[in-house]
Structure formats: C-alpha cells, structure tokens
C-alpha cells in the first residue's frame, strides 16, 4: 500500500512539469494551428540557460527561470517574424508548419550539440537531491518545487487568458480565427504574442527540467513523443486538457515503470500517443478531430 502511494506521489510530482512542458505547445497549436515539433528542443535551450547560469555563476535554476523565459520569448518573436508569418498563406499550412518545425528542431539540436556537446547534464541545486519524508513515503524536493512553479505559471496563464482583454483575443482566435478577425482582432499580432508566450513557457519548463531530468541535446526526440502524447490526449489546443493528460500519463508511466522497468515507462507515452491518435484523434477534451 505504501508502495502504491509512493508511486502515485512520484507520478503526480512529475505531472506538473510535464504539464508545463506541454502547455506552451498546446497554446501555440490552439492559436496558430502549428504543431510545433521544435518545442522540446526549445525546452532544451531553456534547460541550457539554467544549467550555465548555475554552473558559471551559481544562480539557482528557479531564479534563472525568468531569464530563460525572456530569451526564449525573443527567439519566438524572431522565428515568428522570419518564418511563420510568411507561411500563413501557404496552401498546405498545417503540414508545411509541421515539417518546418521539425527542421528547426534539428537546427536547434545541432546548434546546442555543437556548442555544448552531447554530454549528459543536470543542474544540481541542493534541493535537487533532497526529499521530505511523510511517514513511509518521500517526496523529492526538486520535483515538488518544479511541480509547484509549473502550476503557478499555468494558473497565471489561465487567469490571463480568462480575464485580460488580450486573453480574450487569444481565446477568440483559438476558437474561430475568422470571426475574431471580423470583430477587429489583429490575428497576426495575436499569433506573434501567443507564439512568444508559448516559447516563454518552453523556457520556463526548460529551467525546471534542468534539475528534474538529466538532459543532452538529442534527448528532445524522446520529449517530442512524450509532449505530443500529452497534447493529443488532452485535445490539441486545450490547455486544461493538456494539464489533465499530463497528470494521468505521468502517473500511469510511474506505475508502468515500477512494475515493468524504466524503459517501458517511456513507452507508455508513445503507445498512448499512437492509440489516442487512432482511436480518438480529438483527444479527451476536443470536440472535433481538428488534426485529422
């Protein structure tokens, strides 16, 4: 029984981080209908920002988090302006953008690996290896902190989307781009800002990931499938759905890992992705198969 509880807690602790990793992806898809396969490689970039901040200047990764967000947001503005704005009129837009983001995933991976080699890295603030004990079960402190920060950021995003004027514009564009445009929303600008926010979230996730998982540039391939499984299960574009899916899959993966070993634990995400795409392409919360 204690075992079960322990696994559940470990799964939930990671769920928050996965949720944040997927949230930006979901936002970008919602507003721009871009399946951003480069998102995980951008998270990787955020992780390196935090890593070097800690390694060179001893700055705590959670303190580096805003820095990573700003750097990634700037990257987002640049990418949007140089690449995605001009693709908006492309005939096979969704397919085109998938291939393009895939290409950029390779560019970022290659750039990171060239600059920092493929050595396995991890940021090691004190709390990363600490844990608190409650009776027989323990909660790793690093994962706990990362989970809390993730939930705070996602909560802030949700409030912003729900109540700010620009949040209205973002939601409206997600739900009906043409109608939003007709009502006076500058959808291109909304796209730019959402893209930047999405990448800022990738940066934040990267900073947290840097002390939760060990990482190296080519690891983003594994994350692609993991994150895709979250957003696809949650219903592409639904941030709430992504969060719920993150917790579900994270817990399931923790159990699979406990009973069948760590390798098969990752397989959970891949198989879930495959099955969801084929059985219910709209995901848990989607209403129509937008991707199909």
């Amino acid at each position: 029984m204690a075992d079960i509880l322990q696994i559940l807690i470990l799964g939930l602790a990671l769920g928050g981080v996965y949720a944040l990793m997927g949230a930006g992806l979901s936002l970008v898809f919602g507003v721009m209908r871009i399946v951003n396969l480069a998102h995980p490689s951008l998270i990787m970039m955020g992780a390196y920002v935090a890593f070097w901040g800690f390694r060179l200047y001893g700055i705590d990764p959670i303190v580096m988090l805003p820095v990573a967000m700003v750097i990634l947001a700037a990257t987002g503005v640049l990418l949007y302006k140089l690449v995605f704005e001009r693709e908006a009129k492309s005939a096979k837009y969704s397919e085109m953008t998938v291939l393009l983001t895939f290409a950029f995933a390779m560019v970022f991976e290659g750039a990171l690996a060239t600059a920092f080699t493929n050595t396995q890295r991890v940021t090691t603030p004190d709390y990363a290896v600490d844990a608190i004990f409650i009776g027989n079960v323990f909660i790793p402190l690093g994962q706990l902190y990362a989970g809390i920060v993730s939930l705070v950021l996602i909560g802030a995003l949700a409030l912003y989307l729900k109540y700010s004027r620009f949040g209205y514009a973002i939601r409206a564009t997600t739900q009906n781009r043409e109608a939003a445009e007709l009502l006076g929303v500058n959808v291109n600008f909304v796209g730019l800002v959402s893209f930047a926010i999405g990448l800022a979230l990738a940066g934040a996730a990267g900073a947290l990931v840097s002390f939760v998982f060990s990482f190296f540039p080519s690891k983003h391939w594994e994350w692609i499938a993991i994150l895709m499984s979250l957003v696809v299960l949650g219903g592409m574009g639904s941030i709430l759905g992504t969060v719920v899916a993150a917790y579900i899959l994270s817990v399931v993966a923790a159990f699979v890992g406990f009973f069948f070993g760590a390798t098969l634990s990752t397989l959970t995400f891949f198989v879930a992705l495959f099955v969801v795409l084929l059985v219910r392409p709209q995901g848990l919360f989607g209403e129509k198969p937008e991707l199909a």
Partner: peptide, 11 residues
C-alpha cells in the same frame, strides 16, 4: 456576420 455564425463556441 458570415454563414458559419462566427461565434466562439467555448466562450
């Protein structure tokens, strides 16, 4: 007001 009514279904 376009044919598809141009509403935001989840608002």
């Amino acid at each position: 007001v376009p044919q598809e009514r141009a509403l935001f279904p989840k608002m």
